[in-house]
């Protein structure tokens, strides 16, 4: 059983193989975002926020694509570029440090920005209904 992907066909297992490839690339880019923000702005959390918003933009852009784009870019690259686990660990630290502003920004503000970026990506990529 196969799925159509442009001019060639991929086995149904392909998403399970393409997604990890994209995830690896996305995670390395996320790490660079965080390290770059730490080095340049002394704010690693802003690197994480930028990675989350960018990932949602990419996911929106590729949302209207085929199976390959969905696996490689949406589940893969965008999935690896964004993360819930780092945000959760950081939120615990901010909670303990009573950094309520940071929690509000990252939990509510970044969610709104990410949702808007996803919608913008869908509109730009032609995936908006």
């Amino acid at each position: 059983m196969t799925i159509a992907a442009g001019e060639f066909e991929l086995p149904t297992l392909a998403p399970a193989l393409l997604a990890p490839l994209g995830t690896a690339l996305g995670a390395v880019v996320r790490d660079q975002f965080v390290r770059g923000a730490r080095a340049g702005l002394a704010r690693a959390d802003l690197g994480l926020a930028a990675a989350q918003v960018t990932a949602c933009l990419v996911a929106g852009l590729c949302a209207g694509g085929g199976a390959v784009a969905a696996a490689l870019c949406v589940a893969g690259f965008a999935g690896g570029l964004s993360t819930w686990s780092s945000l959760a660990v950081e939120t615990v630290g901010w909670w303990r440090a009573r950094r309520w502003g940071l929690i509000a920004f990252h939990v509510a503000g970044v969610l709104v920005l990410s949702f808007a970026a996803f919608l913008a990506g869908r509109a730009l990529g032609g995936g908006a209904s």
């Binding site: 996305g26 949406v74 999935g79 993360t83 686990s85 919608l119």
Partner: peptide, 27 residues
């Protein structure tokens, strides 16, 4: 930290999938 926290846990969890799922659910 690099392999397991940033890599494995970061790749395993997904914020963009959460946002996409939220959008789909609302739509």
């Amino acid at each position: 930290e690099a392999a397991m926290v940033v890599g494995f846990c970061g790749g395993y969890t997904s914020y963009s999938a959460f946002v996409a799922s939220l959008h789909e659910g609302l739509a």
